[in-house]
Protein backbone atom coordinates (compact mmCIF):
# COMPACT_ATOMS: atom_id res chain seq x y z
CA UNK A 1 0.00 0.00 0.00
CA UNK A 2 2.78 2.34 1.05
CA UNK A 3 4.86 1.34 -1.98
CA UNK A 4 1.90 2.08 -4.28
CA UNK A 5 1.47 5.55 -2.79
CA UNK A 6 5.19 6.28 -3.21
CA UNK A 7 4.99 5.23 -6.87
CA UNK A 8 2.03 7.52 -7.45
CA UNK A 9 3.82 10.52 -5.94
CA UNK A 10 6.93 9.70 -7.91
CA UNK A 11 4.82 9.72 -11.08
CA UNK A 12 3.64 13.26 -10.45
CA UNK A 13 7.15 14.29 -9.44
CA UNK A 14 8.55 12.90 -12.65
CA UNK A 15 6.14 14.66 -14.98
CA UNK A 16 5.74 18.00 -13.16
CA UNK A 17 9.02 19.69 -14.23
CA UNK A 18 8.63 18.65 -17.87
CA UNK A 19 4.98 19.69 -17.92
CA UNK A 20 5.77 23.06 -16.33
CA UNK A 21 8.34 23.69 -19.08
CA UNK A 22 5.84 22.79 -21.82
CA UNK A 23 3.33 25.23 -20.30
CA UNK A 24 6.02 27.95 -20.31
CA UNK A 25 6.75 27.22 -24.00
CA UNK A 26 3.02 27.67 -24.75
CA UNK A 27 2.99 30.94 -22.77
CA UNK A 28 6.05 32.20 -24.68
CA UNK A 29 4.55 31.67 -28.14
CA UNK A 30 1.12 33.15 -27.43
CA UNK A 31 0.04 36.15 -29.48
CA UNK A 32 -0.22 38.97 -26.93
CA UNK A 33 -1.21 41.89 -29.20
CA UNK A 34 1.15 44.25 -27.38
CA UNK A 35 3.70 46.25 -29.36
CA UNK A 36 7.22 44.81 -29.16
CA UNK A 37 6.34 42.24 -26.47
CA UNK A 38 7.47 39.48 -28.85
CA UNK A 39 10.84 41.21 -29.13
CA UNK A 40 11.18 41.37 -25.35
CA UNK A 41 9.68 38.00 -24.38
CA UNK A 42 11.67 36.61 -21.43
CA UNK A 43 13.37 33.22 -21.78
CA UNK A 44 10.87 31.48 -19.50
CA UNK A 45 12.09 27.97 -20.38
CA UNK A 46 15.63 28.98 -19.37
CA UNK A 47 14.35 29.91 -15.89
CA UNK A 48 12.51 26.59 -15.62
CA UNK A 49 15.40 24.43 -16.84
CA UNK A 50 17.82 26.27 -14.52
CA UNK A 51 15.63 25.86 -11.47
CA UNK A 52 14.71 22.21 -12.01
CA UNK A 53 18.34 21.38 -12.86
CA UNK A 54 19.46 22.92 -9.53
CA UNK A 55 16.77 21.55 -7.22
CA UNK A 56 15.67 18.31 -8.91
CA UNK A 57 18.12 17.38 -11.70
CA UNK A 58 16.83 13.82 -12.00
CA UNK A 59 13.38 15.11 -12.99
CA UNK A 60 14.93 17.16 -15.79
CA UNK A 61 17.02 14.62 -17.79
CA UNK A 62 18.87 15.70 -20.97
CA UNK A 63 16.23 14.11 -23.22
CA UNK A 64 13.47 16.20 -21.55
CA UNK A 65 15.54 19.38 -22.04
CA UNK A 66 16.14 18.41 -25.68
CA UNK A 67 12.40 17.86 -26.31
CA UNK A 68 11.49 21.19 -24.64
CA UNK A 69 14.04 23.00 -26.84
CA UNK A 70 12.85 21.28 -30.01
CA UNK A 71 9.22 22.11 -29.22
CA UNK A 72 10.11 25.76 -28.62
CA UNK A 73 12.05 25.89 -31.90
CA UNK A 74 9.11 24.42 -33.83
CA UNK A 75 6.39 26.59 -32.29
CA UNK A 76 8.46 29.76 -32.56
CA UNK A 77 9.45 29.05 -36.18
CA UNK A 78 13.15 29.33 -35.35
CA UNK A 79 16.00 27.11 -36.58
CA UNK A 80 15.45 23.54 -35.40
CA UNK A 81 17.92 22.53 -32.68
CA UNK A 82 18.97 26.04 -31.58
CA UNK A 83 17.06 26.34 -28.29
CA UNK A 84 17.63 22.63 -27.59
CA UNK A 85 21.38 23.21 -27.91
CA UNK A 86 21.37 26.27 -25.61
CA UNK A 87 19.22 24.60 -22.94
CA UNK A 88 21.33 21.42 -22.98
CA UNK A 89 24.49 23.49 -22.43
CA UNK A 90 22.82 25.37 -19.54
CA UNK A 91 21.65 22.09 -17.97
CA UNK A 92 25.14 20.60 -18.31
CA UNK A 93 26.75 23.61 -16.57
CA UNK A 94 24.11 23.87 -13.84
CA UNK A 95 24.05 20.15 -13.02
CA UNK A 96 27.85 20.25 -12.79
CA UNK A 97 27.59 23.03 -10.19
CA UNK A 98 24.30 21.79 -8.71
CA UNK A 99 25.47 20.90 -5.21
CA UNK A 100 27.25 24.24 -4.80
CA UNK A 101 24.18 26.18 -5.98
CA UNK A 102 21.79 24.13 -3.84
CA UNK A 103 23.37 25.26 -0.59
CA UNK A 104 23.26 28.97 -1.48
CA UNK A 105 20.56 31.52 -0.74
CA UNK A 106 18.12 33.02 -3.26
CA UNK A 107 20.21 36.13 -3.99
CA UNK A 108 23.28 34.07 -4.92
CA UNK A 109 21.14 31.91 -7.21
CA UNK A 110 19.65 35.01 -8.80
CA UNK A 111 23.13 36.40 -9.44
CA UNK A 112 24.30 33.11 -10.93
CA UNK A 113 21.19 32.99 -13.09
CA UNK A 114 21.87 36.57 -14.22
CA UNK A 115 25.33 35.55 -15.47
CA UNK A 116 23.91 32.48 -17.23
CA UNK A 117 21.13 34.59 -18.83
CA UNK A 118 23.57 37.10 -20.28
CA UNK A 119 25.82 34.30 -21.58
CA UNK A 120 22.71 32.62 -23.06
CA UNK A 121 21.63 35.89 -24.73
CA UNK A 122 25.13 36.48 -26.12
CA UNK A 123 25.32 32.93 -27.52
CA UNK A 124 21.79 33.28 -28.95
CA UNK A 125 22.71 36.55 -30.67
CA UNK A 126 25.98 35.11 -32.01
CA UNK A 127 24.42 31.92 -33.42
CA UNK A 128 21.51 33.83 -35.02
CA UNK A 129 23.94 36.34 -36.57
CA UNK A 130 26.01 33.47 -37.98
CA UNK A 131 22.84 31.72 -39.16
CA UNK A 132 21.69 34.81 -41.10
CA UNK A 133 25.27 35.74 -42.06
CA UNK A 134 24.49 39.27 -40.86
CA UNK A 135 24.94 40.96 -37.47
CA UNK A 136 21.58 41.22 -35.73
CA UNK A 137 20.50 43.95 -33.33
CA UNK A 138 21.72 43.20 -29.81
CA UNK A 139 19.24 45.64 -28.27
CA UNK A 140 16.19 43.36 -28.16
CA UNK A 141 18.09 40.30 -26.92
CA UNK A 142 19.56 42.49 -24.16
CA UNK A 143 16.00 43.52 -23.32
CA UNK A 144 14.98 39.86 -23.29
CA UNK A 145 17.84 39.04 -20.90
CA UNK A 146 16.85 41.89 -18.54
CA UNK A 147 13.19 40.79 -18.60
CA UNK A 148 14.26 37.18 -17.94
CA UNK A 149 16.27 38.24 -14.89
CA UNK A 150 13.29 40.30 -13.70
CA UNK A 151 10.91 37.37 -14.13
CA UNK A 152 13.20 34.94 -12.28
CA UNK A 153 11.85 35.65 -8.75
CA UNK A 154 8.23 35.16 -9.90
CA UNK A 155 8.87 31.81 -11.60
CA UNK A 156 11.17 30.85 -8.69
CA UNK A 157 8.35 31.45 -6.20
CA UNK A 158 5.79 29.51 -8.28
CA UNK A 159 8.14 26.55 -8.76
CA UNK A 160 9.16 26.60 -5.08
CA UNK A 161 5.50 26.41 -4.16
CA UNK A 162 5.00 23.53 -6.63
CA UNK A 163 8.05 21.72 -5.28
CA UNK A 164 6.74 21.98 -1.74
CA UNK A 165 3.22 20.84 -2.68
CA UNK A 166 4.42 17.82 -4.65
CA UNK A 167 7.50 17.30 -2.48
CA UNK A 168 9.89 17.26 -5.43
CA UNK A 169 13.36 16.85 -3.91
CA UNK A 170 14.99 14.35 -6.20
Amino acid sequence: MIIEEKKRIYGIKAILPFLSCIILVLIMVQSYKISNLTNLMPFLTLIAVYQWAVYAPRTMPPIAVFLIGILQDILSGGPLGMTALFLLIVRFIVVGQGRKLLGQDFLFNWLMFLLITFAYALLNWLIVSLYYDEWQSFLFILGQAIFTAAFFPIIFMIFNWLREIFNVKV
Partner: peptide, 27 residues
Protein backbone atom coordinates in the same frame (compact mmCIF):
# COMPACT_ATOMS: atom_id res chain seq x y z
CA UNK B 1 25.54 7.80 -18.81
CA UNK B 2 24.17 11.29 -18.20
CA UNK B 3 27.28 12.88 -19.70
CA UNK B 4 27.17 10.59 -22.75
CA UNK B 5 23.46 11.29 -23.39
CA UNK B 6 24.06 15.05 -22.96
CA UNK B 7 26.97 14.93 -25.42
CA UNK B 8 24.92 12.88 -27.90
CA UNK B 9 21.93 15.29 -27.68
CA UNK B 10 24.20 18.35 -28.02
CA UNK B 11 25.71 16.82 -31.19
CA UNK B 12 22.20 15.97 -32.46
CA UNK B 13 21.05 19.58 -31.83
CA UNK B 14 24.10 20.91 -33.66
CA UNK B 15 23.43 18.53 -36.55
CA UNK B 16 19.80 19.70 -36.73
CA UNK B 17 20.91 23.33 -36.55
CA UNK B 18 23.40 22.89 -39.39
CA UNK B 19 21.48 20.57 -41.70
CA UNK B 20 17.84 20.80 -40.61
CA UNK B 21 17.19 24.12 -42.37
CA UNK B 22 17.93 23.06 -45.93
CA UNK B 23 14.32 22.40 -46.92
CA UNK B 24 14.55 18.70 -46.05
CA UNK B 25 11.08 17.27 -46.61
CA UNK B 26 11.15 14.98 -43.55
CA UNK B 27 12.12 17.91 -41.27
Amino acid sequence: NGKISTAFLIILSLFLLLFGQKNIKAV
